[in-house]
Write a protein that binds this DNA or RNA. Structure first.
Length: 488
RNA sequence: GGUCCUGUGGCCGAGCGGCUAGGCAGAGCUCUGCAAAAGCUUGUACAGCGGUUCGAAUCCGCUCGGGACCUCCA
């Protein structure tokens, strides 16, 4: 098996993946801020890293996957007019901030479980790690890379960049940034425009607050990831992931904090998933073009003319590479839906294929192609393309137009199952699974229709077929008789 | 304005120096009382203009279009 290579945002190149400790991988992914419903774009990122997690597991690594929940009421800007998102939502819904956190954390978990993502090994919350964050700030202060002003602590970017590079990963040149940054009010506390808050003094109305050496306040946004990744994965770990939009300033600041604290870089490989777009534009709440998962499943959205199941949406996402933007549209989803069902039906057919004497399918080559795809920076679209090649093989074998031996069929079955279910995380959807009595009823109806057909009473047989169609029941006539399914 | 990404057939979307992506739709065929469903087969492409090269969708330059980030963001 060839080696896994991963595109590292830091070097802007694909690099051979070598874990720090043989057989073990530390993976950290930036989780959501739970102040509102997670939308589909957010979900894409978590599906992306679910694939990373699953494939690493498949390769035999022991993976510790840490994904945080941001539940501190960070303000939207570090300035006086900033709004605490969680606090603001609490006011709207007239509940406690922690009720907001709970509500949207539950929603997030529920949606991700619909998408069949594996839960992380550890899902730490920012509010649960205040003391770790305070300790980290103290260290950074002691190391001379931060300063306190009136109960707030800021990271000293200028001091830092004299010693370490800042902005390397996101391609920022801080000195050039100065000229291009728009003027903003309320940053008089900072020594330098690019400094960011490690600790923020809480205004009287700010409910989420904790005591600290600098007074009552709350930690800065970037800090929790630094503190929690260090706590659970160590000062240097293998992979850090997140959405492309977190590259700057969030991840750049994380790197700076960790380096200021520990003296060395925290992460070997930085991975960034690209955005989900709608009509070519990033899906985001502020643009009003976001879809919520439950709206998508139910088809309850002005831009949708039907609902799409979670597995169809997951499959849709896997048909694009994680570093490319993916455009969301009815047409694209419909195409994915058809393709997904074709794939899953072919897989279910493997068992029904009768083995032949000769073998006309090169399983070894197929297997190696699949690994080659995944090893090339998790190229799921290529993998899916290979799977569709096998769909044809399975169908041809089923129709006895192609011969596969028993051992090839059995190898194929095992391998496909592993790829599709365990690596891609796709599963069969029990679409309104029929109970026994429904099936008996249907068998009866099918028999009656068969009788009618034998009597050349096509009026009756067509009536049965058409009326069932109205109930979304599809009759499938074939040489071997008639079967029925609920329409997809 | 700065930095970076991107422009592939009707739609989505891989590939990124020579060799088929793949899915959906379309067309043809098989099956069928007729259909549907399903399966098989199959056409159409690399924004434009230059350049490098034996050879470019793939590298370089320019032009035009789209997008992301530049202290809310997955």
């Amino acid at each position: 098996m060839k080696e896994l290579s991963i595109y590292n945002s830091q070097s802007r190149n694909k690099e051979k993946f070598e874990p720090i400790h043989k057989d073990f991988v530390g993976l950290y992914v930036c989780g959501p801020t739970v102040y509102n419903y997670a939308h589909l774009g957010n979900c894409r990122t978590f599906v992306t890293f679910d694939i990373v997690y699953r494939y690493l597991l498949h390769l035999g690594y022991k993976v510790r996957y840490v994904r945080n929940i941001t539940d501190v009421g960070h303000i939207t800007t570090e300035f006086d007019d900033g709004v605490d998102r969680i606090g603001a939502q609490a006011k709207i819904e007239q509940v406690e901030p922690m009720e907001i956190v709970q509500k949207y954390t539950l929603y997030f978990h529920e949606m991700l479980s619909h998408f069949n993502t594996l839960p992380p090994s550890i899902e730490p919350t920012a509010t649960g790690h205040i003391s770790e964050q305070i300790r980290m700030i103290e260290t950074i202060l002691n190391n001379g890379f931060a300063y306190e002003v009136d109960g707030s602590v800021y990271f000293d970017v200028q001091r830092y960049k004299n010693v370490h590079p800042y902005g390397e990963m996101s391609g920022r040149n801080v000195d050039e940034l100065i000229e291009n940054t728009r003027e903003l009010d309320g940053q008089e506390e900072k020594r330098f425009f690019a400094d960011f808050a490690l600790w923020k003094k809480a205004s009287p109305e700010h409910i989420m607050r904790w005591p600290s050496p600098w007074g009552e306040g709350f930690p800065g946004w970037h800090l929790e990831c630094s503190a929690m990744s260090t706590k659970y994965l160590g000062e240097t770990f293998d992979i850090h992931g997140g959405g492309m939009d977190l590259k700057f300033p969030h991840h750049e600041s994380e790197i700076a904090q960790n380096t200021a604290c520990c003296g060395h870089k925290p992460v070997n490989v930085w991975m960034h998933g690209n955005m989900l777009t709608v009509n070519g534009q990033k899906m985001s709440k502020s643009l009003g073009n976001s879809f919520l998962p439950h709206e998508l499943f139910a088809g309850e959205h002005p831009l949708l003319d039907q609902g799409y199941s979670p597995m169809v949406v997951r499959f849709f996402m896997l048909q694009a590479h994680y570093r490319s933007t993916l455009d969301f549209s009815n047409e694209a989803l419909k195409a994915a839906e058809k393709g997904y069902h074709r794939l899953m039906e072919a897989i279910a057919k493997i068992d029904k294929c009768s083995p032949g004497e000769t073998n006309e399918f090169n399983f070894v080559a197929f297997k190696s192609n699949c690994y080659e795809a995944m090893n090339d920076d998790f190229n799921t679209p290529i993998l899916v393309a290979h799977l569709f090649e096998v769909v044809k093989v399975i169908n041809s074998c089923f129709d006895k137009k192609m011969s596969l031996t028993q051992s090839t069929l059995s190898d194929l079955k095992t391998f496909i199952h592993e790829l599709v279910h365990n690596v891609l995380g796709l599963k069969e959807e029990s679409n309104e699974s029929a109970n026994d009595s429904t099936d008996h009823l249907m068998q009866l109806i099918i028999q009656l229709r068969q009788k009618a057909k034998e009597n050349k009473d096509y009026h009756t047989s067509d009536l049965i077929r058409d009326e069932l169609k109205k109930l979304a029941i599809q009759l499938n006539d074939s040489k071997d008789g008639t079967t029925w399914t609920y329409e997809k």
